[in-house]
Design a protein around this nucleic acid. Structure first.
Lengths: 341, 341
DNA sequence: CTGAAAGCGCTTACAG
DNA sequence: CTGAAAGCGCTTACAG
């Protein structure tokens, strides 16, 4: 475990020069720099991040707060963020609150404020006004993904209009019996998108003057299995059943498709299903969806954070927080005209 | 940003006493402790981890190295590890090599050795002998998940026998035309399980004296979509096609099932599919599989690491590295007798 | 049980 | 361009 002193000795310079040569801060003669690098190399010296952070106040480490890592959206955001970060030479410390308030609070009070973090990315995390203030007072940049948080740079898709668009797609195909599958109350707290999407659905339905049936406003836990149960119940109804289902996520849409199949219903001849996400599996299952590229969102959040930290050229491309993150309507075989009755 | 001095001043004690009162190390009178805690509370004081780590040599932070986070096995391991860690008050720094050698090497040389880590968990990472030596020389405990690494505590399932068991299940049902879907060369490097599972398959086939067709030894990238293509090709063959497919992962088994369905083949009447993993979706798709509980493996690795760090009661339960991690054969509807010809 | 002080391994004004 | 030295905010023998 060679230290900076060992390198200085071997290179025949002071530790100050070693620090400058290796970090790139300050002036060092080419000759000295070369000797330092050679010495560091031969000793296998790597700077102690703890000491460096303590002395400089910068830790080259950013925190990512997620409610779970077990859902496609979040693991994909994480994947995108880590790739972007590794190239910048930053570490990623993961805070998985597990949706538990207790963990969420401790993340906040302890982990974010005084930890070894230069900045934080929060994913669909609801922040209280005083928490935002706290973060601002500490001076650590924060970038949020999902939902809208006042005063904080946010990467988000236009949930309301996406859901409205998905709904209009079904209405445009002739559907009048449309169900919406959103997130349960419990999940909306974290994911915080359920209601915007449901609002978009209701708006589109109202615009088209298609009546909304309250008992077709379903909710699930964003899992495929959860969605399967709910959709199966509604499709198995002996009375009228919806001919189209707008799902707030692709994973839930998969559940809807599987439920229909298991009931012997054909998709889309008997029932159309549309999702929101752009999950890889969607292609195999022929799912019509609105893709939102979570990996790109993760990378964009990293880019924005790095800019705030003064790392990247601020002129590099448009500000990802300036508007909504782009989405793409992807038409496949899970949607079609409703069955004639 | 109150510091330890502020707390000491407010509590009317020295910083040494504050440190001892808050960390629990060393003796402090009940009265002093109480005053310190009250002072810390009212100032919103949180210890600086960098300073603490530098001074003590312990950082309450562990590293997790994965080749990707976009595959179910890995995100589930991660989920299990984070839950276990958050309760212990440890941070988790994530190193996602993305399967790139360049990232993998930098993780090794820079990140692990001199970073703010007390220990490391590697998931299906192949380590060179000199790397193991390096780790040992630094004295940082390492626990591996998946595969076997000499001299390092390893949490792993019995890949060989699991695959053999899966194969025997199909043979026992009467199948003689059995295909194996493993990982591509490229993936085996990281995942490092492909060959053990293929070996198990071949062993079981040989034992039962069922001939192995080389052109039915398929490989894919462990993704559902990749598996779909390969299996579709083999099932679409105008000549003989396999009546059973042993898949090295559930996600690939999903691809196999979907490929069969899309070709109009019934599962299991026309073709049986068995996976390895225990993915949640397996229940919905009726997938017979051998569940290996990756979340539990992640938690077990954390537990082992914490023990090595002297954190937990060593007497708490059996050593998870003492044998193979338990797996569970889960019979569902994707396997049955082969079609009569 | 408690405090003064050294030290963890760097970074960075400051003075040359 | 370079070095001596202070300081980052803690922890922990050491001596009471």
């Amino acid at each position: 475990m060679a230290g900076i002193k060992d390198v200085a000795e071997l290179a025949g310079v002071s530790v100050a020069t070693v620090s400058r040569a290796l970090s790139g801060n300050g002036k060092v003669s080419a000759a000295a720099k070369e000797r330092v690098q050679a010495a560091a190399e031969s000793l296998g010296y790597v700077v102690s991040y703890n000491a460096s952070s303590l002395a400089s106040g910068r830790s080259r480490n950013i925190g990512l707060v997620v409610p779970t890592v077990g859902r496609w959206f979040f693991s994909t955001v994480l994947q995108g963020a880590t790739s972007a970060l590794i190239d910048a030479g930053y570490d990623l410390t993961l805070y998985n609150t597990g949706g538990e308030q207790r963990h969420r609070d401790s993340v906040f009070s302890e982990l974010l404020l005084r930890k070894r973090l230069d900045g934080v990315i929060t994913v669909t995390l609801k922040l209280e006004p005083e928490e935002i203030e706290q973060l601002a007072s500490v001076g650590k940049p924060v970038v949020a993904i999902g939902g809208y948080i006042p005063q904080i740079d946010t990467i988000w898709v236009d949930d309301f209009n996406i859901a409205a668009l998905a709904t209009e797609h079904l209405i445009g195909l002739g559907h009048r019996e449309v169900s919406f599958l959103g997130g349960t109350e419990e999940f909306e707290v974290d994911f915080k998108l359920g209601s915007a999407r449901e609002d978009g659905f209701e708006f589109a339905m109202d615009q088209a003057e298609v009546p909304i049936r309250r008992d077709w406003l379903l909710t699930a836990d964003f899992s495929t299995a959860g969605a399967y149960q709910k959709v199966r119940n509604v499709l198995a109804s002996p009375c009228r059943r919806p001919t189209g289902i707008v799902c707030a996520s692709d994973e839930m849409a998969f559940g809807a498709i599987l439920a229909a199949r298991d009931l012997g219903l054909r998709v889309p001849e008997d029932v159309s299903v549309i999702g929101i996400d752009g999950h890889e599996l969607g292609e195999l299952l022929g799912l019509t969806t609105i893709a939102q590229d979570p990996g790109g969102q993760g990378a964009a959040a990293v880019g924005k954070l790095l800019t705030l930290l003064g790392e990247t050229d601020p002129a590099s491309g448009p500000d990802p927080t300036a508007g909504f993150f782009p989405t793409e309507f992807t038409s496949r075989s899970s949607t079609g005209a409703p069955p004639r009755t």
